[in-house]
């Protein structure tokens, strides 16, 4: 009887250890996918920041060019004699 009870305990312990390893494996997979997702978010943030910076620079250049054009047009509008030739 005692030998049979010892074998049952050993089997239970083995089943528990296997379940524990399966749970650890599942958690490792979950953590790995979460890290990949985190890396993707970091990369996406960097890419988006660079794109936004490029767009901001282009917008600044466009703003300056538009201001220059506005000044030129206002100057030309202030001197209508240039267009009366």
């Amino acid at each position: 009887m005692a030998r049979a009870g010892g074998i049952t305990n050993a089997v239970n312990v083995g089943i528990a250890v296997q379940a524990d390893w399966e749970n650890r494996e599942f958690i490792s997979h979950i953590s790995l996918n979460v890290r990949r997702l985190f890396d993707f978010l970091v990369q996406f943030e960097a890419t988006t920041k660079s794109k936004l910076a490029a767009l901001n620079e282009k917008l600044d250049i466009l703003e300056r060019r538009l201001e220059l054009l506005e000044v030129q047009v206002s100057t030309a509008s202030a001197n209508p004699s240039l267009f009366n030739t």
């Binding site: 988006t48 282009k58 538009l66």
Partner: peptide, 19 residues
């Protein structure tokens, strides 16, 4: 987000061309 940024970039390019 990428689509929106690309659209804005294209719009800025068109604006540069017009200017």
């Amino acid at each position: 987000v990428n689509n929106l940024l690309d659209e804005k970039a294209d719009e800025i390019s068109r604006t540069e061309l017009r200017i």
